[in-house]
Structures are given as C-alpha cells and as structure tokens.
Design a protein around this nucleic acid. Structure first.
Length: 492
RNA sequence: CGGGAUGUAGCGCAGUUGGUAGCGCACUACGUUCGGGACGUAGGAGUCGCGUGUUCGAGUCACGUCAUCCCGACCA
C-alpha cells in the first residue's frame, strides 16, 4: 500500500489542507471518483464501527430497537410536510428511470426513454417521510406506543461543496424515529437522546460539547425544536456534531397517523427524530490531531497498543516470544494490541506510521532493553517516552490508556474554554470572530439580527446553550432587550 | 448558479521559440541495511482530461467541451 507519509502540511499553516491530507495519509478515507462521495478505508471504517457499537448499546439501554426502511422514497411523500420538503428539495437525487439499453452504435449504454417512472423516486436524504408512512400502519391505539426505532444506513444529499467526512454527498449515519402518545413523552425523548449524544462525545470521543437548542432559522425542516451538541475544532470553528428533533405532530398529521387514546378519542402521534453521522469522524480528527498525525482516544482506537520489535534477525525469535507474552497479558485485560514484526519496514518507518494513525500507545521491544527487563513505552498524546519494567506491564498500560483518554479530553476542554468569549459589543465581535472561537452574546430573538450577523461575519447562532447562565442584557446589533444569551460561531 | 484556478505515470510536479515524454515519491527484483521515516543496482508503468481546428509536425497555439479544486450561496 503506497502512502506518502512525509511532509504533512502543518496545522498552523493551512488547517483545511492539513485536515484533508491527514484523512488521506492516516489511511482513513479518500475522495471517490464519483461526485462528492467518499471511500471509507478499512482503518477509518474500524473507528466508525466502534462508534456504532458503543452508540447502539447506549440506544438499546433506553429501549430503542433497530429496524430498516427503504432507500427510495416516492416523490409525493416528501411533499406531505411543507417545511420538510422546502428544507430538502434543493439537494435531492432523483430516480427517473428503471432501465438502460445499448446505444445505436453498440459501444455504450443510454437511459431507455421507454422506462420512465410514472412517479419519480427520491434517494433518501433522511427518512422521516417513509418511516411515518410506515408507522401509519403500525399505530392504532395508545397501547401501540411508544415506537422507538433506529436505523443505521446511508443517506444522500446533493451538496454543492463536499469535504471528507464533514460533508459528503453520501454519508453513513443512524437516524432514530420515535412515535409517542403525548407531547411530554416525545419532548422528553428528544432531550434524552441529546444527553446520550453528549455523553458519547465526551466520554468516548473525548470531545467536549455544548448542548443547547437551535434558533428557529437553524431548526431542522419540519421540527418544533432542534436540540444540538456543538463542538469546537482546533481552528476555533464550530461543528454541529449531533441533533435531536422534537417534531410535534407535524408528521403525524402529514401522514395521518392517528391513534385512540385512553379516553377513546382520536389523536395524532407525537414524533421525534435524532441522528449522528460519519461527520463525528471529522470531529474526532479535528479535535485531537496534531502535526504528527491522528490522535485517537483509547476508547475508540481500533488498535490501542502497537508493539514494535527491534533487533538483529537472530534475535527476532526471542523477541517474538517475549512479545507474545505481553500481547497475551494485554488481551486478558481487554486491550486491543498489534504486534508488528514485519521485516520489510524499518522501525523508524513504523514509529512514524503508527503515530500518523493515532495509535495511543507504542511499545518498543529492543533486544538491548530486554536484557534489563525493560520496554520503552510511548504515549501518543504527549509523545513522551519512558522505560518501564516488563513485569506488570499490562496493568501499567491499562492505566495509561485511561490516563490518555482523560488527558486528551481535558486538553480539548481547556482549548475550548480558552476560546469562549463573552461579548456584547458588535464591533469587537466582528473583529474577534474572524479568528474563530465561540461567542456568548445577547440576542433579541429576531431573524433580522441573526441574518445581519451572518451576512457581516459568516457566523451563525449555534444554539441557546444550557450550560451558561441566561443573564439579562441587550442585543449587540439592535440594542433591543435580549430574549436569550446565545452561542455564536463560524461553523463547518 | 456567480468569481478564480488547474487537468501530463498510483501521488506530487517539470516540460523553453511547436520537433515525438521527464523528475521526485510510490511500485517490482536482487544485494547491503535495520535503536526515529535506509541505500545501491536493474526494471515496469503515460491514448499529455476529451473533441475539433491551424501546421510537414501539437503536451505546447486557437476554439469548444468535460471534470476537479478554492472562494461565495446551500448544508449534518
């Protein structure tokens, strides 16, 4: 496998270029030849799989079950909910025909005009419509509720500009869709799922997030409320990392999903939907990585420890044997470990390569050190090396992994907190926001103000955050009394 | 869909006044190496994005076309 490892662009030189190179060179993914799509390579997919597994378990603990719904959505479904269709219409891929035929010169194929579909099919950009069309058949009584379904799938949105993981035309995600008998229960579910996303981001990805609720203009198309987690990348820009929507009865009404409540009265079902996508991979990469490459949190690293032997060829059998013991003891403690004794790569190459791939801990098993009963341990987050006794090495590493997980989280929290500013002066804001960061500002709640900020600075209201106090104040643009204290930032 | 740029080997690039294709990395083989991205020798690999035109002759000039990237608008 040919990978150009050297000359990774520095993070500070060109953040965007650094990110792109990193994704490709760390062997996570590459741009596909097919417009705006991405190939996720085995190493990148292994991280995604780990994320999936953890999230899936967290969902199931709250009673959610997995299901699967069709890829293709009849065009008419999409138009049932007016706001929803307006939100997605501009980025839908449409299936219009169902057959090809060879062309007249027999050296290619053309779309058979005779095979035109009577009703076009949309490749799902999200599945609310097809799922609620299905729920109609599942729901008759309050006893059928709640329905708590999740599906892991791909969706397609015909984006103008794409970026690996952050915005691709096709992406992988999970989308949960729940139906409830009461408003309260649905709202509670939407908030619960946001909590789960926040917990996952912070405890597993080691990415601190700010939870909050979206302003009306930033809301999901068709939702009454959109809850969000916002993370700060190392260039100070915000990345919306997960959303949970309270959809009210909009889809219940649009798809005529009625049930008889306890009072024997017909009522429309209440809905939520929530999702996180492969965009989380982007968040993971942009939060922790440095100029040497990826830094993965131990909780999600496909390989937590790599062992590299160094010695003359006649010493290798002895090193192999010793390594096998260490591998065994690590596996017993549930640590995933790779022993790389490939003889076609030199040690220096391997060091650089595993650093680039973000493996949290590296052990160097050298013939010299081994005589003294020592092994060199390097932690990826700080790049610090130390010699450790082989006796009890597994426990030592287990603790070290926990330490790394905590340390990179703390580092990310510190970085973020150092770049959050309270600001109620618009001139100051306009100047400062160019350099990134999150701004806590008072907002009068009007769309006009929101639009002006966006036009002047490209920054948007990310959310009304929960974790910061809602102090009274005046809007920095209009000077009117503030309705909320909001988080404003430039975003991906 | 606006503004800018670029298409030459898997990747990154050079290619002069038009004269028949080159460099670095990667790849293959052999040898020497192996404690922080090794070196030598020998190889393989290209319809120069596509089309038309000008010309004895086009990677190079003209026109057209397609694609990609960057900056906007849109967005998880």
């Amino acid at each position: 496998m040919a990978i150009e490892l050297k000359n990774l662009t520095k993070r500070s030189e060109d953040y965007s270029k650094w990110y792109n190179e990193l994704v490709v060179k760390a062997d996570l993914a590459e741009q596909s030849d097919v417009r705006g799509c991405m190939v996720i390579k085995p190493y990148g997919y292994a991280i995604w799989e780990k994320m999936q597994k953890v999230l899936d378990d967290m969902f199931k603990e709250t009673g959610v079950q997995n299901a699967y719904f069709p890829l293709l959505i009849p065009k008419s479904f999409l138009s049932r909910e007016a706001e929803h269709v307006e939100g997605f219409a501009k980025e839908c891929a449409v299936v219009t025909h169902y057959r090809l035929k060879t062309n007249e010169t027999h050296d290619g194929v053309i779309v058979d005009p005779a095979a035109k579909l009577e009703e076009e099919l949309i490749i799902r950009p999200t599945s609310e419509t097809i799922i609620w069309n299905t729920y109609k058949n599942w729901i008759n009584s309050y006893r059928d509720l709640p329905i708590l379904c999740n599906q892991w799938c791909n969706v397609m949105r015909w984006e103008m500009r794409t970026r690996l993981f952050l915005r691709t035309s096709e992406f992988l995600w999970q989308e949960g869709h729940t139906a409830h008998a009461t408003r309260e229960e649905a709202e509670k579910r939407a908030k619960l799922m946001l909590k789960i996303y926040a917990k996952f981001a912070e405890e597993y990805m080691a990415v601190p997030v700010i939870q909050g609720v979206k302003s009306e203009t930033e809301r999901f198309a068709g939702a009454l409320d959109t809850y969000t987690i916002e993370a700060m990348m190392q260039d100070g820009k915000a990345l919306q990392s997960g959303t949970s929507h309270f959809l009210g009865q909009n889809f219940g009404k649009a798809f005529d999903v009625q049930f008889l409540n306890k009072e024997n009265k017909p009522e429309y079902a209440w809905a939520t939907s929530w999702g996180v996508s492969t965009r989380l991979m982007g968040a993971l990469i942009m939060t922790h990585s440095d100029d040497n490459g990826l830094v993965l949190p131990p909780a999600l690293a496909p390989i937590q420890v790599v062992i590299i032997p160094i010695g003359k060829s006649d010493q290798m059998p002895m090193l192999d044997e010793k390594a096998a013991e260490i591998v065994e003891s690590l596996k017993t403690l549930g640590v995933s470990v790779k022993y790389d004794n490939a003889d076609n790569k030199r040690p220096g190459f391997k060091f650089a390569d595993y650093e680039l791939k973000g493996v949290p801990v590296r052990l160097v098993l050298g013939a010299r050190d081994l005589e003294k009963g020592l092994v060199e341990v390097m932690r990826r987050d700080t790049l610090e090396k130390e010699n450790v006794s082989i006796e009890g090495i597994a426990e030592y590493i287990k603790n070290l992994l926990n330490d790394i997980q905590k340390n990179i989280y703390k580092k990310a929290v510190d970085y973020r907190d150092a770049h959050i500013y309270e600001c109620d002066n618009y001139e100051e804001f306009k100047e400062k926001v160019k350099n990134g960061g999150f701004f806590l500002c008072h907002w009068d709640g009007t769309e006009e103000t929101e639009a002006k900020i966006k036009e002047d600075t490209q920054a948007t209201i990310r959310c009304v955050p929960y974790m910061y106090e809602q102090t009274p104040g005046t809007d920095m643009v209009s000077g009117k009394p503030a309705k909320h204290r909001v988080l404003i930032a430039r975003a991906y």
